[in-house]
Structure formats: C-alpha cells, structure tokens
Computed example of a mutant assay.
Amino acid sequence: MRIDTTGLTDVLLLRPEPFRDERGLFTRTFDAALFDLYLDEQPGSPATRARDFLQDSQSRSHRGVIRGMHGRAGRGEAKLVRCARGAVHDVVVDIRRDSPTFGRMESFLLDDEDFAHVFIPPGFLHGFQALTEAADVCYRIDRAHEPLEDLAVAYDDPDLGIDWPLPVTTISPRDASAGSWQDLLDKL
C-alpha cells in the first residue's frame, strides 16, 4: 500500500496494490501498522492513529445522488473513506481556520478498480456523488456520531463552487436545507 499526500494539508490518499490473476483480485484495504508508521514519520502529522478508529459504516447510493457536504463541530471527526462498489466523485473542503489550505477543496475519484482511500482528519467538510448505478461507500470514523455537532453546507453553494460531474438526482432533506458557506464561516 502506498500513502500519498494531497493538495490539502493532512489529507492523505491511501492506494492499495491489488494482486490480480485469472480468479479476480485480492487486496489489503487497510494496514494499521503501515498507516501509523507513515504518520509517525511525518512532522506535524494528524494525531489520529489506526487504534482511534472505532466505527465502520457503509452507504449505498444511486447514480447522481449527492451526500454532503458534512462535517463535525467540536473536536471534529477523522474519517477513512473508500468506495467498495462502483465509483464516486469525492470532495473534501478544509474548514480549519489556522490551516494553510483553509477554504480550499480537492476532489478524488474513489472506485472499486484501484481501491484508493481518502484519510480526512478533523476539520474538513466531506461529500460525494455516485457516478455509477450503485456506489457503496465505506467510512471508518474515530468518534461516535453526535447529531448536535453536525455541520452541513449546501452541496451547490456558489461560494464553494463544487463542480459535480453529473446532474443531481437525489439529495436528503437534511442536505436540501443545509446552510451556506458564509453561515459556516460565521460559526467557526
């Protein structure tokens, strides 16, 4: 497994290296020792370590569905996100005021071909759009869900200007009523 930096401070892209043969493939989707070793070698790396992840969740979305843009207040939430089935356009936005990449976003293609994962430390908004008929997204998080700490910004907020690749087919009522980027800035 390779671990690469991204254009956002502390966001990492984990790239498994599948073994493929006539039967199909086998891949290690996460290696705690490698993850921790990488972080231990990086000066100023996020405090999250493999042992901190305590919950795995999975969503299934249909083509065009957007889930996001979500975050957590308080001490935030670290996530390790991957697409186990299909493909998604994954978007991350830095909301840490003291970060050199504050307000910047980056997008990633996560799919069931190369199995890349995005490590998102606390202090980011996250969302994705399903690109295939069905897309299963797996989340590994370091905190139990606390609804009172939920943050959300509208997926189509003009100040964020996210370029979603497909027409939007469905969003949740929560996402439809999400606030603006400016509303979030006023809270931070």
Rank of each mutant, 00 (worst) to 15 (best):
M1W: 06
R2Q: 08
I3F: 02
T5K: 14
T6I: 01
L12H: 09
L12M: 02
R15W: 10
P16E: 04
E17L: 14
E17Q: 14
P18C: 09
F19W: 12
F19C: 10
R20A: 04
G24V: 03
F26P: 07
D31S: 07
D31A: 02
F35W: 01
F35A: 13
D36L: 13
D36M: 01
D36C: 03
L37K: 10
L37A: 15
L37V: 08
D40P: 07
E41Q: 14
Q42H: 10
G44S: 04
P46Y: 05
T48S: 09
A50G: 02
R51F: 05
R51A: 15
Q55A: 03
Q58H: 00
S59A: 06
S61E: 08
S61K: 08
H62F: 11
H62W: 14
G64E: 12
I66R: 08
R72G: 00
R72I: 05
R72C: 09
G74V: 12
A78I: 05
R82Y: 11
C83E: 13
R85S: 05
R85A: 09
H89L: 01
V91Q: 07
V93S: 03
V93R: 13
V93L: 08
R97H: 11
S99V: 02
P100Q: 03
F102Y: 11
F102G: 03
G103Y: 05
G103H: 12
R104V: 01
R104G: 06
R104F: 07
M105E: 05
M105A: 15
L109H: 07
D111M: 10
E113A: 12
E113T: 14
D114Y: 14
A116G: 13
H117E: 08
F119E: 04
F124D: 08
L125C: 05
F128G: 00
T132W: 03
A134D: 15
A134S: 15
Y139K: 05
Y139D: 13
D142W: 12
R143G: 05
A144K: 01
P147W: 12
L148W: 15
E149Q: 15
D150G: 10
D150E: 15
G161S: 00
I162C: 09
D163T: 12
P165C: 02
I171P: 09
P173S: 06
D175I: 08
G179D: 01
S180V: 08
Q182F: 09
L184P: 01
L184D: 00
